[in-house]
Amino acid sequence: MKNKLVRITTVPISLEKLLENQLRYMNDFYEVVAISSDEERLNRFGENQGVRTYTVEMTRTISPLKDVFALIKMMKVLKKEKPFIVHTHTPKAGIVGMLAAKIVGIPHRLHTVAGLPLLETNGMKRKVLNFVEKLTYNCATKVYPNSYGLNEIIVREGFCESSKLKVLANGSSNGINTAYFNSNFWSDNDKLVFKESLGVLESDFVFVFVGRLVRDKGINELVHVFDKLSSGIKNIKMLLVGPYESELDPLLPETVGIIKKNKLIIETGFQKDVRPYLDISNVLVFPSYREGFPNVVMQAGAMGLPSIVTNINGCNEIIINDVNGFIISVKNTKQLHDAMFRVYEDTQVYESMRDKSREMIVSRYEQLVVWEAIHEEYKSFENDL
């Protein structure tokens, strides 16, 4: 009889994207149950992965009354299922899942940290979020930062004693399927046709951003820098691949204005499969303010793209400066401008980085290696039976 494993995220897209196919893999060894919000989407995920699901509505904002209801329902589900392991991801699922698991007496309570949004807040909100973060870690029996830099931040901020922390494999929550993220899927003609459909010329040098179009991802800086660059260079384009989140983290009005006005900026909206967009691009630009371990930087590297990233945890572990990309300071528009211009202007530097990009991802972050490391961690608890 298999031990029962419960995996919890705030919203199903985290199960789909951050943990893509991991639950199906774990289902070979455990009876896996997924818990998240949005019943219809969660049910589709469960059918796709072959796992049972429970819907517990959770919000990504501070909402005490809704959080209490979510906690009560989560306790009922966990009390009914009696899992051997509860493993949570994302902040709200972390506090609701870990607190519920501790109250009902689940023996192994694991929480993965894939970023700390609170680092960009201050005042009373920061104090509240600090308290919630500490409570989450206190309720967990083990905490897994998904990068070494994040591990250091957690210790520095005093959220958790270092003995409870562990980075699995080389970091990342899910690794990357380098067979799937591979530029060999498309012929030169396929790429040409796709470029034409977007209004990208064969001679264009294409910068690409993939992710949410929000302030915290550095989109204000990126758009302003590209607008300045494109005023003097006409054979460049920029793809913005991702959705706006105007309610949670809106862009500056002038940024939105530039995006709409500059014809060299191409918006694609959310895309389920980002590979074709990476495949027709030359460089990923990812000037985020904070991350855990960004999947898109691994994905771009696996597709053979150098990356321009900020000097934050995760990004500065995947990218080695001047080897497979450039590392710049957060919110530094001059450094961003100089890096984008250099990778465009210096063909030798660009070609060298491109040649190294894929091999550096394959050797360090292959998906199966990460899955096996998580499975080995789970197995280590079986001695407690």
Results as ranks from 00 to 15, higher is better:
residue 1 M to V: 08
residue 3 N to Q: 08
residue 5 L to W: 02
residue 8 I to T: 02
residue 15 L to D: 04
residue 16 E to L: 13
residue 21 N to R: 15
residue 22 Q to C: 05
residue 22 Q to H: 11
residue 25 Y to K: 05
residue 26 M to V: 00
residue 27 N to I: 00
residue 28 D to I: 01
residue 29 F to Q: 01
residue 31 E to R: 11
residue 36 S to G: 07
residue 37 S to E: 05
residue 39 E to Q: 09
residue 40 E to F: 12
residue 54 Y to L: 00
residue 54 Y to G: 00
residue 55 T to L: 01
residue 55 T to E: 13
residue 59 T to G: 11
residue 61 T to D: 14
residue 63 S to P: 00
residue 63 S to A: 15
residue 64 P to M: 08
residue 65 L to C: 05
residue 67 D to R: 10
residue 68 V to Q: 04
residue 69 F to K: 15
residue 70 A to D: 10
residue 70 A to P: 11
residue 70 A to L: 10
residue 74 M to A: 03
residue 82 K to H: 12
residue 84 F to P: 02
residue 86 V to K: 04
residue 88 T to C: 14
residue 92 K to H: 09
residue 93 A to S: 13
residue 99 L to I: 14
residue 99 L to Q: 06
residue 101 A to I: 11
residue 103 I to H: 06
residue 107 P to C: 02
residue 118 L to M: 15
residue 119 L to Q: 14
residue 127 K to I: 04
residue 128 V to R: 05
residue 130 N to A: 02
residue 131 F to W: 07
residue 132 V to D: 02
residue 135 L to K: 14
residue 136 T to I: 11
residue 143 V to P: 07
residue 145 P to T: 10
residue 147 S to P: 07
residue 148 Y to R: 15
residue 149 G to Y: 05
residue 152 E to L: 10
residue 153 I to Q: 06
residue 154 I to F: 02
residue 169 A to K: 05
residue 173 S to Y: 03
residue 175 G to K: 03
residue 178 T to K: 04
residue 182 N to W: 05
residue 188 D to C: 06
residue 189 N to E: 15
residue 191 K to G: 12
residue 193 V to Q: 14
residue 194 F to I: 12
residue 195 K to E: 13
residue 196 E to C: 06
residue 199 G to Y: 03
residue 201 L to G: 13
residue 202 E to K: 15
residue 202 E to C: 03
residue 202 E to N: 13
residue 205 F to R: 09
residue 207 F to A: 10
residue 211 G to V: 03
residue 213 L to D: 05
residue 213 L to T: 09
residue 218 G to P: 09
residue 222 L to V: 11
residue 226 F to Y: 14
residue 232 G to T: 14
residue 234 K to V: 12
residue 235 N to T: 13
residue 235 N to Q: 11
residue 236 I to D: 03
residue 240 L to I: 10
residue 241 V to K: 09
residue 242 G to P: 12
residue 243 P to C: 07
residue 250 P to E: 15
residue 250 P to D: 12
residue 251 L to Q: 08
residue 253 P to L: 09
residue 256 V to W: 03
residue 259 I to A: 07
residue 271 Q to T: 04
residue 272 K to I: 08
residue 277 Y to W: 02
residue 277 Y to A: 02
residue 278 L to P: 00
residue 279 D to E: 14
residue 280 I to Y: 04
residue 286 F to Q: 13
residue 287 P to D: 07
residue 291 E to Y: 08
residue 292 G to M: 07
residue 299 Q to V: 00
residue 300 A to K: 06
residue 301 G to K: 03
residue 305 L to M: 08
residue 305 L to I: 10
residue 307 S to H: 00
residue 312 I to F: 01
residue 313 N to P: 14
residue 318 I to F: 00
residue 326 F to C: 07
residue 327 I to C: 01
residue 332 N to W: 03
residue 332 N to R: 08
residue 342 R to V: 01
residue 347 T to K: 15
residue 349 V to H: 07
residue 349 V to S: 15
residue 352 S to E: 13
residue 355 D to C: 09
residue 356 K to Q: 09
residue 357 S to D: 05
residue 359 E to M: 08
residue 360 M to N: 14
residue 363 S to N: 13
residue 365 Y to Q: 01
